[in-house]
Write a protein that binds this DNA or RNA. Sequence first.
DNA 1: ATGACTTCTTGATTTGGATCAGGGATTCGC
DNA 2: GCGAATCCCTGATCCAAATCAAGAAGTCAT
Lengths: 260, 260
Amino acid sequence: MLTKHPEIQSLGGKYVLVSCLAERLSHYVRLTEAESLSLTQLEDQERSVRRGAVIIRENEGPRELYIVRSGWLHSSGVLGNGSRQILRFHFKGDILGLPLLAFADSPETVTAVTDAVLSPFSRERLAQIIADHPRLGALILGLSVAERVALADRLASIGRTSARARVGSLICEIVARMRRLGAVGNGGYVQLPLTQEDIGDATGLTSVHVNRMMRVLVEDGIIERNGGNQFRLLDEKRLVAESNFVDRTGLETGWLPEAR
Amino acid sequence: MLTKHPEIQSLGGKYVLVSCLAERLSHYVRLTEAESLSLTQLEDQERSVRRGAVIIRENEGPRELYIVRSGWLHSSGVLGNGSRQILRFHFKGDILGLPLLAFADSPETVTAVTDAVLSPFSRERLAQIIADHPRLGALILGLSVAERVALADRLASIGRTSARARVGSLICEIVARMRRLGAVGNGGYVQLPLTQEDIGDATGLTSVHVNRMMRVLVEDGIIERNGGNQFRLLDEKRLVAESNFVDRTGLETGWLPEAR
DNA sequence: ATGACTTCTTGATTTGGATCAGGGATTCGC
DNA sequence: GCGAATCCCTGATCCAAATCAAGAAGTCAT
C-alpha cells in the first residue's frame, strides 16, 4: 500500500509515505522512525473536497478528525441571529476536528475555502498513537495549546483593538503561517483566497468596513494588492507594531517526555 | 508526607491526599489507583497567594504550571495601547499555565482575583505523567481542547453579539461552571468577586457600559443583585437563549485509550 | 474615626463601525 | 459566449457603545 500512495518520497534510500503532520512536527523535534511510521499511517487515507464543502457540521456528531494535506479551510460558528464567526483558518498540517476530543457534538462547522485534500482518521486511532507514543500525545497537546493561544490572541484583537488593527493582525498572522509553510512566493506575494466577507467574519467586522480598512492599508503603503487574490505585505514591521501582532508559529518542545 | 498534608480525607478505609484535578477528572472517568496517585503527587505542594497577586507574567518564562485548589483567577493579555483583555477565568481544578507547553515565554498574565491556593508543578512532572499514563495525557488534551472551545465561544460572543448578550453569556458561563463545582448556594446565589471593569475586560466593553447592561438585566428581572458581590440568575432560560450560550462543561471520554 | 482609594452609578456628548443603497467588475455554469 | 451570481467598491445615514464628567457609596489602612 505504501508504494502505491500518490505522495511518495525517496528519503535516505527508503521509500516513505509523506505525512503532513509528521512533516510539521519534524520542524520542532526529531521524530523516531516508529513515531514517523505511526503518523504516516494516520494519513493513509485521502479525501478531496471542493471549495465550499462542509467537512464537519455544527451540532452533529462526526466520527472522524482530519489532517489537512492541502488547501485552505476554516472553522466557524453560527449564532442565533444568523451571523457567523470564523474562529480559525486551517492550512496544510493542521488537525481538523480537535473539539471532538472533548465533545460528542461538534461546536464548530469546518468549511473548505478552496479545493482541499484531507486525510480522515478516527479518534480511536489517535488514542492508539497516544498510547503507543506518549511523546506524540504531548506534542499534539502542544499543538492544541498553541491553537488555544492563537484564539486568545484573536480574542484580544477583536475585544480591544480598532477595525484597522483587527484586519492588520489577521494579515500578519496569515503571512507568518504561510511563511512557515514556505508558501510565500518570490517577491513576497501571498495567496489570499478569502472574500472580504470572510475576513469580516473572522475579525468581527462587516465586509463593507473590511473593504475600507484594506483601502487605507493600501493607501498607507502597508500592503499591496494584485488584481487576482494575492497580496504583498510591504511594511510588515509597521503593521506588526500597530496591530499588536506576535508571531507564535514556534513550538516549545524542551519539556516533552522521552520518545518511546 | 501524605498524612501531614492539610487536606486529607478518609476514603474506602485508606487515607489519600485529595487532588483537585483528580476530583475534577473523576467526574468524567473512573480513574485507576495508579492514575489517582500520580495526580495526587502532582499536587503535593501548596502555595497561597493574595488577591491581586500575579502568578505568571506575560513575556516571562516561568518554570511552573499550577493547579487551582481554591479561589478565582484570570488569564489576561495587555495590548500596546494599554488595554487589557481577560481571556479566561480559572476556578478550582483548572490548570494554569498550559501555554507553557507550547511557548517558552508566557503569552498571558495570570492574576489572582481573590485570595487563592495553588499547587505548583513542573512541566517535567507533567511529561512524566503523560509517559506513565497515556490516558491521563489524553484527558489533559481533552481539557485543553475544551478550553480552546470555550475561548472560541467567547470569541464569537465578542465578535458577533451585542453588549447585553456578551455580559449575559459571561454570566451564564460563570453560573454553569459554579454549578459544576457545587458552588451555587442555597437560593441560587452565586459569588461574583469581579469588578465591573473586570467584566468589561472579559467582554470587550467599558466598565460604564457593563454597569448599564447589568442594570437592564436587573430591570428585566433576569438577574438579581445582592449588595455584597453576589447575584442570582432568575431567568436562566431566557438569558441562555438571548445570549446564545451553550453549556459545554461536560467532557467526552469515549475515545480515550485504555488506562495503563 | 478619618482620609484616601476603589468601585459603582448616571447623565451628556462623541464616534467608530453598522446599515442601507446602488453601480461596477469578475467569475461561473451552461 | 452569455446570463446570473458573486464579489468589490463607495457614498450617505444611523446607532450602539465609547468617552467625558462628576457625585455617591463602599473599602482599606492607620
